[in-house]
Design a protein around this nucleic acid. Structure first.
Lengths: 209, 209, 209, 209
DNA sequence: AGGTAACCGAGACGGTACGTCACGTCTTTAC
DNA sequence: GTAAAGACGTGACGTACCGTCTCGGTTACCT
């Protein structure tokens, strides 16, 4: 994965402690939820490319300005709507062998990318081809947490003599996740049952000596 | 690769013999070339998503109708402009071992997908997320010829005992080409020199026992 | 009526005697009829403004070039289609008093301008507002024969002491035909039964001492 | 005149008192004026039939949407541009004999329909032949106020014994205004000086006993 | 009989304008 | 200061016709 460098959000922790003074009317949580909800609903009927900010605003009964104030693009809204769903949070398994860790992570990814969810991510990948910002967003909000951990496990597996030492780790990483995204981008029959069940084991098989 | 089934054009051979009569003014080869050329030029300055049919028409000094008469979408124009370039024709190596054949084919694919060309294909993949027609186009005009041949070589390699027998051929196919497209979609630093040189060998390494 | 000056077609008489040599294939009478017929049919469904040359060509199974070769505008086609119909030929009554002649002529005009036919003439008048050629056509092919004869009868009526001497003949002429065209241009309820029956007498009433 | 029945706008008076709340950005008076002004300027160079909404938008430096938001057709824009000019407002003379009132009204109409203004109205009449909406517009915004008042004066004149009792009032009305519109539609030499000066008296002459 | 030339149908061509859609911004009142 | 509403200028969409052109093929008269 040749993705952009990390972009640590330094404010994240501070926010909790320092109650900054914000004059004026505070952001409406109701609107935020209405926007993300409308987006999710609309994306069940149409691909991200056909989704328009105006349609979201209308469905959420919200001014367009409110959307533009808080999100830079429809891909960003879709990303947030996607991540807020139950079942897409990424849980990093604490203790396990490299092999088990990779298998679990691939299973988790497959779970997150099947069906409707996969189509959202596919849409965001599509949008990213015309905008570096969306590409960064995709990496920061989705890939970083889900793909990077695999890197260390591959290295460890190689050190432990389980995986082929000659494999370039970066390329091995691509071989683990490449097929996944290829399927996600391949339309309706993307990640089918057979693939979902057999892929993690098959991927490991390729790495093993 | 879960792509649509082959769609053999039974007329292809007949076309050469049977000179069909087409009443009316014949299609202008000059315009066809001007359109593809303008498309190629414009795509060096902008991604496919920003390319407009109107801009092509203007640059090619051609009516918009002429474009719509012959191509169903800007992705189709881009595909044809891409394929017409020297160096993207797919040559299937005649005699070779499975291993060599796969290596050669991967090298060829990498050559075809580096730099500007890769960005065109990435754009077409992006467009395909909103239109099944474009997805079919991508398969019929590009993937079918370049990816399918690998399938047989994987099977042969497995039968010869060179590749791991436990590998599902379909999935192995995805593992060969998935990383390639992942890089192509990853932006500027997509297929770099290191990847280009080491990938074919690395991919084979994963398949081998 | 302030219409353009006469435009005598000097060839008209000559044509009959002098059989000019026309090399090449002669004009197709079949096509001519098909075009006028298609035009008439289409004009029952749509106003002249919505009629397109392409629609005529398609309906008449004729090349567009054939139409453009023989007619300068769709108004000209409509005019010819209109005039070719039975019942619109103008017959000048031979002997009569001024009063009778005017009455007959107005009755004839009303007959020619009622219903569907009126809508065609209304369309041609509309087209004439953007093109002097169509205005000339309207005068030469339609108005000249039907309206000018009234001029002399008005003068004669004034001389005979039947009509008001103070009336300007030109203006009186406009007063005779103005209301007719006003109705024709007034849409669906243009020339209704009441108007059709009472107008000639009413118009004469206005002129009489 | 067989025009649609009156369509009294009952809200007119209320509008002044009741300040209706209109959420959102208010209509731009600047754009409205720019559009009407551009239309007026363009119509001095070309007939209404050649005027395009796009040309207006370009000249007025305004989006096409802004035009379509407020006007249903180019005829409607032309009508508004026409009516907003000084000198085309219709002033109904308060006290006068039927004869004087008709004469004044005809003089006023002639003033409003001479030259450039007449060509605009002619264009609108032309457009109305393809669209009932434009025909209604022509009646509601122009004819109703200017032609209908004549109706009552004709009746009164007949009752007073000044005008011929046998005249059908509707037809008499057409005889008063028919010649006017006939001239307006007759092109460049439409309403000339001779007509303008003599017509009102001539028209009355036709009605009088 | 063959040559010549204008005709014919079909339909592609470069254009212009259509009316619609969505963009991202701006301008209003209300909270 | 944020929010809903919706008008604004912009630009691209895909379509309909315009009037012209370019084909192969037809139909007459004149050598």
């Amino acid at each position: 994965m040749s993705m952009p460098a990390e972009n640590i959000d330094i404010d994240t922790n501070i926010k909790e402690e320092k109650k900054e003074f914000h004059p004026g009317r505070p952001r409406s949580e109701k609107s935020r939820k209405a926007i993300l909800d409308a987006t999710r609903r609309l994306l069940t009927h149409m691909p991200l490319s056909e989704l328009s900010i105006e349609a979201i605003a209308k469905k959420a009964k919200v001014g367009k300005t409110t959307i533009y104030r808080w999100w830079p693009s429809k891909a960003a809204i879709a990303m947030e709507a996607f991540l807020e769903q139950p079942g897409v949070q990424n849980i990093i398994p604490t203790t396990a062998t490299s092999e088990e860790a990779i298998e679990k992570q691939l299973e988790s990814l497959i779970r997150q990318l099947r069906g409707q969810n996969g189509r959202i991510i596919a849409g965001i990948i599509a949008e990213s081809q015309g905008s570096a910002d969306v590409l960064d967003l995709l990496y920061d909000k989705f890939l970083k947490d889900r793909v990077s951990p695999l890197h260390d496990h591959i290295e460890k597996g190689k050190a432990d003599g389980i995986f082929k030492k000659e494999l370039n780790t970066e390329i091995a990483l691509d071989m683990l996740v490449g097929p996944l995204f290829l399927r996600v981008l391949s339309g309706e029959h993307g990640i089918d049952n057979i693939f979902a069940e057999s892929y993690p084991a098959q991927a490991l098989l390729a790495l093993k000596v």
